[in-house]
Amino acid sequence: MLKVNDLVVRYGVIEAIKGISFEVNDGEIVTLIGANGAGKTTTMHTISGLLRPYSGNVELDGIDISKVPAHKIVEMGVAQCPERRRIFASQSVEDNLLLGAYTRKDKEEIEKDLANVYKLFPRLEERNKQLGGTLSGGEQQMLAMGRALMSKPKIMLLDEPSMGLSPLLVKEIFSIIKEINDNGTSILLVEQNAKMALSIAKRAYVIETGRIVMSGTGEELLNSEDIRKAYLGG
């Protein structure tokens, strides 16, 4: 479904991504783990079209999307739930969700999906008139995920969903990620919380200073000695 080929991304002369390739197949959860500054968010932004590759490309169902404008990529079925959530603080929870459906015109379907998001995140329904900025971190994460779902994506990119959340909330968020995946949406998950990410991912890639240094199934990496030492705390 999503294929990244030999991607190189530069900020001026600094090469942030030094030629990475990976893919996400239909219905998979794939995770990209790595430390701060490894290039995970850069990769996500490039897939979504916020950044342009220096070389290499990104394919969605065989179509090269590396020159498609960001707003069109959303329409093609790639939704991103960005790092730090970036919800619209001055707009209501419901308006945030409806902005997620910005590219869609099927009013009745949008209503249905809104109801589904509220079913998935009952807390968002309780607070639907509240301003986005007044939500707690966990609620903001739910809102960001709900908002991404509202575009009816084929694949959802999740950038650090666990950031700043309590262990209990992280568990809740991850079980919802699993549920979203069970409903048929492929997922590309970027995480520093390697343990959580590997436990739900079908396949995983380890990224270090702009290069993929290891890949395998989630389970393989979870049991790998190197990974254990570097990312799972011994």
């Binding site: 932004h45 979504s48 079209g49 916020l50 707003h71 991103q80 970036r86 919800i87 619209f88």
Partner: peptide, 8 residues
């Protein structure tokens, strides 16, 4: 950036 991610 976030607006673009909404398809705006």
């Amino acid at each position: 950036g976030a607006a673009q991610l909404m398809g705006i």
